[in-house]
Amino acid sequence: MSERTTSSNWALGIVQALEMGGVDCRAIFRQLGLDYAALEDPDARFSQDGMTRLWQRAVELSGNPAIGLNMAKVVRPASFHVVGYALMSSRTLTEGLARLVRYQRIIAEGADLSFRPTAKGYELILAIHGDRLPPARQSAEASMAYALAFCRWLTGQPIRPQQVLFQGEPPADLAPFQQVFQAPLKFNAGHYALLFERADMDRPLPTANESLAQLHDRFAGEYLARFSESRVSHQARQVLCRLLPQGEPKRETVAQALHVSQRTLQRRLQDEGTSFQRLLDDTRRELAEQYLAQPNLTLLEVAYLLGFADPSNFFRAFRRWFDITPGEYRARL
């Protein structure tokens, strides 16, 4: 399968948060064709689109668009798979969040994290990608609420961010957001982010343990290697990202870069539930989202970075992906 997946550990945390909001997840899982029993299997994974549908259905049934914030109430290291324990054994939150970024794909492939120093502290930036469906904003809100609650739980300190950034319009009811984040909120931002004070991030963690941290690093690294590198679709996606700015990559060029024949590449992609054309289309779609969030890039530059020789082909593809033009998409951001 080349579709993005979410670990059962993270999915279980989401289910607990939704059930806390009065949603019957067992019934929704049945309706969506998801396996509720697999939540108890630490090696199971759920499709990204399955989780998006779960969020959508839960919001419909509960009538609560802020239901994702319940994730702040279900903090447990296991939700982050082995990464939670690696984070706990880190010396400081700075070190722990760097580990979270490194091993993020173990938890959920639909999210990209980055953690960087700023003039006044640190910024944890989150990007959520859809698979065939655009991502639910509740997914991003839940991730942010959980990350902050985990930092508070780990340090035993009531950490208050300098600011919390959200993409999209402000909700009708701000109260749940103010209650969970206890910080200045900014909506219609270019990306999702938590801005932290340097002192909060650099304070020693009570659970720090250097030898355990190394052990968890080994487990997480081995899991990630098994999980990613064995998938030719993952390797091909990396090659496509590298080649796209030079024009539309040919299948034979990608096969050569991976040291396999075109036929082998096609067969292995097929085994993983995709094809070269679909992978190219998906990669372009994801990169388009990322590039359009960067205001310094013109639409023409974005088209060329995605390997489109003719910008009108980019506009047509974009409308097919998102049902709106690139300009309208950027205006919403």
Rank of each mutant, 00 (worst) to 15 (best):
R137K: 10
R152F: 00
L34F: 10
R198Y: 08
E222Y: 15
E248I: 05
V83R: 04
I67V: 06
A136L: 01
A58K: 02
N209W: 15
Q270W: 07
R198G: 01
L297H: 14
A175W: 04
P245A: 08
R30D: 11
G50Q: 07
L124A: 03
G96Y: 06
H81E: 04
P326T: 06
L212Y: 09
P245T: 06
L18A: 09
D281S: 15
V23C: 12
I67N: 01
R132L: 13
A58F: 15
G190P: 11
R237W: 02
P204W: 05
L243S: 04
R53L: 15
A111L: 14
C151N: 02
K186S: 13
E229M: 14
P135F: 05
F318H: 06
A213T: 03
G327C: 03
Q179T: 13
G50I: 06
L124P: 01
A288E: 03
V82N: 00
A44Y: 02
A11M: 08
L215D: 08
H216F: 15
L224Q: 13
A208Q: 10
R26G: 15
C151P: 02
A183E: 08
L306R: 05
Q182D: 05
S79G: 10
E289W: 10
A303W: 03
L87H: 04
L243E: 09
A17Q: 07
L306F: 01
A44Q: 05
S275N: 09
T52A: 13
Y192L: 00
V23Q: 06
A86H: 06
R316Q: 12
S143G: 11
S90Y: 02
Q246G: 11
Y122N: 08
L243D: 04
L297I: 01
D173Y: 07
A119M: 15
A142R: 03
N296Q: 14
R152L: 06
F322C: 08
A236V: 02
L195M: 07
T155G: 09
P245E: 09
E301S: 14
S62G: 09
Y223A: 14
L297N: 14
Q246D: 15
H259G: 07
L279N: 01
F315I: 12
D217V: 03
N64H: 14
G22T: 12
A236W: 00
M144V: 15
L34A: 15
I128K: 00
V101L: 09
P170F: 00
R319T: 11
L87R: 07
A119V: 12
A38I: 03
Q266D: 01
D24F: 10
R242E: 09
L258Q: 00
Q262F: 00
S89H: 07
E95Y: 13
P77L: 08
A111D: 02
Q178V: 12
V180D: 03
F196R: 14
G168E: 10
R45Q: 03
V254Y: 00
S114P: 14
